[in-house]
């Protein structure tokens, strides 16, 4: 999957696997915990701007619908 830069993006990782020191916090406008449909806690980042390689292990979406579907299916 390829991503465009300077777009609106959402990224998810299991909260248990979230390591705040591994990401550039200032890059992300939103950093919250969300619950999936199965009530699994995920760390959720949201931002507008370029993508950073530090999110290689995250599920990243540049469509709100796809991001919402991710929560619905997990």
């Amino acid at each position: 999957m390829s991503f465009k830069s300077n777009e609106h993006s959402w990224a998810f990782i299991l909260e248990s696997e979230y390591k705040p020191n591994d990401i550039t916090l200032s890059h992300y406008e939103v950093n919250v915990v969300v619950l999936s449909a199965e009530a699994v806690p995920y760390r959720n980042l949201e931002w507008t701007g370029s993508l950073l390689p530090e999110l290689d292990t995250w599920d990243v979406f540049q469509s709100a619908k796809e991001a919402a579907d991710f929560l619905e299916s997990n």
Partner: peptide, 9 residues
Amino acid sequence: WNNSSSFIN
């Protein structure tokens, strides 16, 4: 509501 997957578009 409480469950994030319920957040509306």
